Amino acid sequence: MSAQKKFVKFFSQYAVVIIFVMITVAAIPPSGLSIKYILQEIITRLGRNSFLVLALLLPIYAGMGLNFGMTLGAMAGQVGLIFAVNFGISNWHGLLFALLVGLPISVFLGWICGLVMNRAKGREMVTGYILAFFINGIYQFFVMYMLGSVIPMGNRAIVLSRGYGIRNTLNLESVRQSLDNILVLRVGGYAVPVVTFIIIALLCIFIVWFKKTKLGQDMRAVGQDMVVAEAAGIPVEKTRIIAIIISTVLACAGQIIFLQNMGNLATYNAHDQTGFFAVAAILVGGASVTHASIANVFIGVTLLHSMFVVSPLAGQKLFGSAMIGEYFRQFIGYGVIALSLVLYAWRTRKAAADARLGLRGGTNGSTKVSAVKNGANGAAGNGGQA
């Protein structure tokens, strides 16, 4: 392979990573932020977001692409937090209670999502995206009407003045950073939420272990070729459903970790961008629709949120408006997803074209060899007759 082809292949594979590194590095000087401040923000955001992004891995292994349906798990986590605040359960006990409430909801929603995706094989990403809109309607009805009317709410401070429905913004002061503050390690002036990172590390260990189990191997086999996996006796549809259920449950836990760090809950729209930014992060880290790793998660969260930190102030300094930086975040997020999907489609078509070309070349070569053999046999036969 020539040097030019190697460069093109490398750039097409890591184009998003390269572009993000360039944008972030270029935005640091005009932002005026110190490297120490940026590093502390990255540490905080790694603890806040990594669990959510890790929830995307298993569906990718199972060949289901980027799970935009993880938003269902985020909604389940928010319902758990609403009940934790309602019952006045504080600190990490409140987070555990929220998880216990959200767990059965996320399992049920993941099962529904898996069933739907099994009816839309090959179109799982757009199906998950649209399904999230549908379930969002049910979530809105639940928190806007049922809580306080059908389901009694003892804490009237979180209920709207009309007597039912939850307030637009819910103060999570009772559980705010209760996980992060269990043990904080200060190293060189940086605050590291140790317990949060231990939980993230345990999830990474679980994923590595899970890939080696029978179920994990089945998921990878299904992701490579569903027809071959079915022929090998693997229950393809059941395996896909399990992958989505686990992803949804992890998204539930990840949203609880995210919101306890933020300290407040936008009741009706906190989950809207959960799947969007998680998908953008893993793509920025060099993952694709079919291939992803734990390293892609941490690289992506670091790069994406570095840009998020510096872009508002860079926009303020360069254009006189911090809103330019905010709009730039949205533009970059959607642009990353679009560019990654375009590159994936291009690589897939190119690989298919190369395979057809190789097959055609192999067929022609076989034809030529057969012709030579036939000619040789014919010559030998004629010589014998002569």
Rank of each mutant, 00 (worst) to 15 (best):
9 K>R: 14
220 R>M: 14
161 S>V: 09
298 F>I: 10
262 M>S: 13
115 L>H: 06
340 S>L: 06
103 L>Y: 01
238 K>T: 01
350 K>D: 14
335 G>N: 08
37 Y>C: 08
43 I>T: 07
257 I>Y: 03
132 A>D: 01
238 K>S: 04
76 A>Y: 00
33 L>K: 15
276 F>D: 05
262 M>K: 12
20 F>Q: 02
378 G>W: 09
293 S>Y: 03
256 I>T: 03
120 A>Q: 06
106 S>A: 08
250 L>Y: 02
107 V>A: 01
86 N>I: 09
134 F>V: 10
176 R>S: 14
385 Q>P: 01
238 K>D: 00
24 T>G: 15
385 Q>K: 13
225 D>T: 02
123 R>Q: 11
365 G>V: 07
101 V>C: 05
6 K>T: 11
173 E>A: 13
335 G>V: 08
290 T>A: 13
27 A>P: 05
270 A>F: 10
200 I>E: 03
378 G>K: 10
74 A>C: 08
68 F>Y: 14
167 R>S: 11
351 A>Y: 08
287 A>F: 03
216 G>V: 07
144 M>Q: 15
55 A>N: 03
58 L>F: 10
34 S>F: 09
329 R>V: 04
55 A>P: 03
10 F>T: 12
182 I>N: 04
49 N>I: 09
142 F>Q: 03
295 A>I: 12
274 T>N: 05
362 G>H: 10
68 F>V: 04
333 G>F: 05
377 N>T: 12
351 A>K: 15
47 G>A: 13
32 G>T: 09
150 V>G: 02
132 A>C: 06
334 Y>Q: 05
278 A>K: 04
6 K>D: 12
41 E>I: 10
50 S>M: 08
167 R>V: 15
343 L>G: 06
296 N>S: 15
37 Y>I: 10
337 I>G: 07
91 N>A: 15
138 I>A: 14
86 N>V: 08
286 G>W: 02
206 F>L: 10
127 T>D: 00
148 G>H: 04
248 T>E: 02
382 N>G: 10
337 I>N: 07
370 S>V: 14
6 K>W: 08
346 W>M: 15
302 T>L: 14
225 D>G: 03
349 R>I: 07
381 G>P: 00
98 A>N: 03
218 D>I: 00
341 L>I: 15
55 A>L: 06
316 Q>I: 03
32 G>A: 10
237 E>N: 11
127 T>R: 00
105 I>E: 01
374 N>E: 13
182 I>E: 08
271 H>I: 06
156 R>Q: 13
75 M>A: 07
292 A>M: 12
26 A>W: 10
177 Q>W: 04
280 A>F: 05
43 I>S: 05
122 G>V: 06
335 G>E: 07
74 A>D: 03
380 A>C: 09
357 L>V: 14
113 C>Y: 01
333 G>S: 12
180 D>T: 04
236 V>S: 00
9 K>Y: 14
53 V>D: 04
165 G>I: 04
210 F>A: 07
97 F>C: 05
313 L>F: 13
317 K>I: 04
328 F>L: 12
212 K>T: 14
329 R>N: 14
80 G>K: 01
105 I>P: 01
350 K>Y: 09
33 L>T: 08
55 A>F: 02
162 R>C: 02
128 G>Y: 00
207 I>T: 02
37 Y>P: 03
64 M>K: 07
